[in-house]
Nucleic acid binder design. Structure first.
Lengths: 364, 364
DNA sequence: ATTATCATTGAGACCGGTCTCAATCAATAA
DNA sequence: TTATTGATTGAGACCGGTCTCAATGATAAT
């Protein structure tokens, strides 16, 4: 407690009421913009408010109304520009509907995600938008839902949790990206993704607890199967959660006696690291290695060559998820919606037929 | 408990008190973790709280304590990765000190900045961090300060407003960057910056209302003067506030009969756009044009050639500004501090001597 | 003139915590 | 044994809004 510190005493409705010579209730009516007040009184109160420089205390307002006007957003990694755009989409939509956004970062760690949710609930946010970092432990999400607060999932669906969800067509997108590579003649393709799992080697889908990751792997495998690739030639690498981990995975992959001739990256942060490793090894894109990444990050247009990408409409994703939440907040009652936003592939210059797919490549 | 009424009735201290068979005051003491309570009672209350799944209402708590535990941050443009890192630095520091962050975007527009500040004050944030978008109209900032809420300025100082401020050594950084170019033989250099001003032509410093912009221009001009450049050959271009504007400015610049042989960009968003325009025109970097940009954005390492940058320690900037604010929040009384964080220049491959500085260059 | 009707305004409870101050009770001191 | 002290606990005000309901006064209807 600060005794010496002069407490900031802000102007309250009571102060304005006194100044205007009306009751607190009446002043509150004009200041809070509800109920009916005569024009004359309204003018008096407004004048008094201006004179005293009254600023409503949203906290107090929230307490009685039960509404805070805040939407809580828990996202995996704000530094990832995919989330950056999504958050921007959320913020813009929220603001134009009169809501504010409070943002938390989970660093893709379930414990931080849980902590963030707890804090946000404590702040009495009106609703939440979450990108669940894994689908095994979702007790905290169930709890949000049970508490009656609307929840919308962003980018990742939870199979056995039926709640509003907005994702992209991950499976289809991965399949199409892979088909571009197989059509080009690639027979040994790696898919590098960031799911957090001990051990980077993929064994089976049972390990994958994040829907988007699982769906992409399914799409990838489907395309590989259609093209008749050997199971041993579809290289699925998990655990690219940090730049270092990604570099290690890429290094290991390219050091094999039979390295892949093409790589698909599950996000642009991973792709950037792959690009660096590849160049450091003196390999050329696309001659020595083809590369496709999810998310049309800005840097993908200025590399030489520019990178072929799966364009996920991140901003629209954010917009959509916010709209869904706000509609619920406004009382819309309907069964949970699962919206799938389509992606498209932007072909640039990072895909070419493999030079010689059976021998390891060295710098020519 | 909640019968047919869908209203979310959360568990309160009174409920816990009743369940535990103690008074509201006592339950509040253990739940709020203040005052003294016997171990036995503490156990009972905790058990009751657990049983009822009590969650404190931070809103109510904030109302009585006057502290919300929230830091408000108003930043120019979150999509700019410089601010992204800074915000991350702020968030991390805030969280580890037990504060939350509520983020607002001003889009570098003074009116949006004012609105954001108003909302944040309404939410009763404990303190604010702002990157002022201009220095002419700072009534809203003065007001924050007057209301007794700590305010720290990020990245931009306000000359006649003495408040905690964290910036980088803009003038020195700009001067050093320019010196690299002049030392290399460049005699006609452009500096492109984002300050929002009608008309892209620079006239005099009187137009510049943002300290960091002004300081950089001063540093730029100092270096130009030292190298003996003609005043007409230091091309200062204002108004690169959108990708399109930046492209137009760059185009105009490169279409001159005597185009610059080197460009300095005031941030990486601008530089990215310059890079695109330059490549589209078929010009080569660094042979035809040298380029240096502020902020070590990730893409600057993967272009061909990689870009020489002024490395602003954005994360540390964020950390520092948050620390300063938190110390104030904890009651530290001291005169306003102006902290200047040093930058460094990372030389990569985008600077080379001009081919022929007196004739316009075309694609060779 | 008297009563019903409608529009305004005022009094005060309430939201869910914090915090002050008085009351209670056991233990220690006189 | 009685007074004093210290440790706990309880009652209730308070924060700054919202909101219900009763009171007031003017106008319209009978």
């Amino acid at each position: 407690m600060n005794s010496s510190n002069p407490r900031i005493h802000s102007v309250t409705v009571a102060d304005v009421a006194r100044e205007a010579g009306v009751s607190k209730a009446t002043a509150a009516r004009v200041l809070g913009n509800y109920g009916v007040v005569s024009e004359k009184i309204r003018g008096d109160v407004l004048a008094a408010a201006k004179q005293l420089d009254y600023r409503p205390n949203e906290l107090a307002r929230s307490m009685t109304t039960g509404r805070s006007g805040i939407i809580g957003v828990v996202v995996g990694d704000i530094e990832n520009s995919f989330f950056g755009y999504a958050v921007r989409g959320i913020s813009d939509t929220a603001r134009s509907a009169g809501f504010n956004v409070i943002l938390a970062n989970s660093s893709e760690q379930i414990e931080m995600e849980k902590a963030a949710v707890r804090v946000l609930i404590g702040k009495r946010v009106d609703g939440l938008i979450v990108t669940p970092s894994e689908s095994r432990d979702i007790s905290h999400l169930r709890e949000i839902h049970r508490s009656g607060r609307p929840l919308v999932l962003l980018d990742r669906a939870l199979p056995d949790f039926d709640v509003d969800t907005v994702t992209v067509d991950d499976s289809k997108a991965a399949q199409r990206a892979t088909e571009i590579l197989t059509a080009c003649g690639h027979r040994r393709i790696a898919y590098i993704t960031a799911v957090d799992f001990a051990g980077h080697e993929y064994k089976d889908l049972g390990q994958i607890y994040t829907s988007s990751v699982r769906e992409r792997i399914e799409g990838f495998m489907t395309a590989c199967d259609i093209a008749g690739l050997l199971p041993s030639d579809r290289l699925i690498m998990l655990g690219a959660t940090t730049p270092q981990a990604t570099a290690d995975i890429t290094d290991k992959l390219l050091s094999r006696s039979n390295p892949p001739t093409a790589i698909i990256a599950s996000d642009s942060v991973i792709a950037l690291e792959i690009f660096k490793v590849v160049r450091q090894r003196g390999l050329r894109i696309p001659e020595d290695l083809s590369l496709i990444t999810f998310h049309d990050a800005d840097w993908t247009t200025v590399t030489s060559p520019p990178i072929t990408v799966v364009d996920q409409p991140a901003y629209i994703l954010g917009q959509t998820v916010a709209e869904l939440l706000i509609r619920r907040l406004k009382g819309e009652a309907r069964p949970p919606a699962r919206i799938i936003v389509p992606t498209s592939i932007i072909e640039r210059g990072s895909v070419a037929p493999p030079l010689d797919q059976d021998k390891p490549r060295t710098r020519s």
